[in-house]
């Protein structure tokens, strides 16, 4: 790849121990992430999709070290983040920021918007005379005015709050922005405003996004590449157009088929994915998708597939699609 990777994730594993295991002898463990490898290239938008419990949110947090991974490495801008501790890590946080799903609960309820916005600046010892010019400029850029500064979060609408969250994340001029379902709590018409804003900002500032969402149409609109996750595994990753037009992995296919779209009417027929997502406490052997996979064969229960190229810029972890392409 000619462009430089901003984030390099290798062999990332995250296990959450469940409480109360000692009575039954064995401690039960949730395998939230299992051996994740991916790069986020400088200046790109990498979309991460999957259903609840697939680990996409955990992956975003593990990259930022908001949750410490159990194993593996995360390199960001030349630093091995998993090795950083205390103040060094806190200083590094200026360069990687996150925007959460629900803006009302991600801003402190008893602090004014201005107090929330000055916090990153004071924390990172920005000279005081730079605070207000920076805040004013960014508030204007995200489409808010100084009249919003002395309000409390509950006095603003969801869309306005999400603009504040974005402004706060950008105050320190980060290189990486993790967007964790930033539009899921918003109405469609407001969602469009926020997506446009994110798209413009990225072009103007040259930001890199990790865009996490369950909404395929939003991810498709904004992302250069898409990664698909299922039950703690990355099952497919590749260029957006390729994934949307020619998905390799059977799960990706099912996911694309399940999204309700305006202008389509398939609920009469549609061979849909049956059953439910298995528990990540005791994930299925072999390929984790084999219990629901419409094309599973004997091999899928026994050995675990790894990501292999299925196209020019497309990789999938499936025994059967690999066989097909060869």
């Amino acid at each position: 790849m000619d462009k430089q990777a901003l984030v390099t994730v290798r062999g990332l594993v995250k296990h959450f121990p469940l409480p109360g295991g000692w009575l039954s002898g064995k401690r039960r463990i949730v395998q939230a992430l299992d051996n994740i490898n991916l790069d986020i290239v400088q200046g790109e938008v990498l979309g991460l999709v999957g259903e609840s419990g697939c680990g996409k949110t955990t992956l975003g947090r593990c990259i930022l070290q908001l949750i410490r991974p159990t194993e593996g490495s995360v390199q960001f801008d030349g630093d091995e983040l998993t090795q950083l501790r205390g103040d060094t890590l806190r200083r590094k946080r200026a360069h990687m920021q996150i925007v959460f799903q629900n803006p009302l609960v991600s801003l402190s309820p008893r602090r004014t918007i201005q107090q929330s916005l000055t916090e990153p600046l004071s924390t990172h010892h920005m000279p005081r005379e730079e605070w207000m010019p920076r805040i004013d400029a960014l508030m204007q850029r995200v489409g808010l005015g100084i009249q919003h500064l002395d309000r409390y979060p509950h006095e603003l609408s969801g869309g306005q709050l999400q603009r504040v969250s974005i402004a706060r994340a950008l105050l320190l001029e980060p290189k990486l922005l993790v967007l964790d379902e930033p539009t899921s709590a918003l109405d469609v018409s407001v969602q469009a405003q926020i997506i446009n804003l994110l798209d413009e900002l990225r072009r103007e500032i040259g930001l890199t996004y990790l865009f996490i969402s369950h909404d395929l149409s939003v991810v498709e609109h904004l992302s250069d590449r898409i990664g698909v996750m299922y039950l703690g595994k990355l099952v497919e990753i590749g260029n957006t157009e390729q994934i949307m037009k020619q998905p390799s992995h059977p799960y990706t296919k099912a996911l694309l088929q399940s999204v309700p779209r305006v202008g389509s009417r398939r609920m009469h027929e549609a061979p849909l994915l049956e059953g439910n997502v298995p528990s990540p406490i005791n994930p299925p052997s072999g390929c984790r998708f084999h219990t629901r996979c419409p094309i599973a064969e004997a091999i899928c229960q026994q050995s675990e597939p790894i990501l292999e190229a299925t196209g020019a810029a497309q990789w999938a972890a499936c025994h059967l699609t690999i066989k097909e392409t060869l």
Partner: peptide
């Protein structure tokens, strides 16, 4: 709560998180 996680993501120290948030 998310606003506590948000403060941590900015790099605010634990003492300040307790005091402010």
């Amino acid at each position: 709560q998310y606003f506590v996680e948000a403060a941590r993501s900015i790099g605010v120290s634990d003492a300040m998180i307790i005091w402010r948030h």
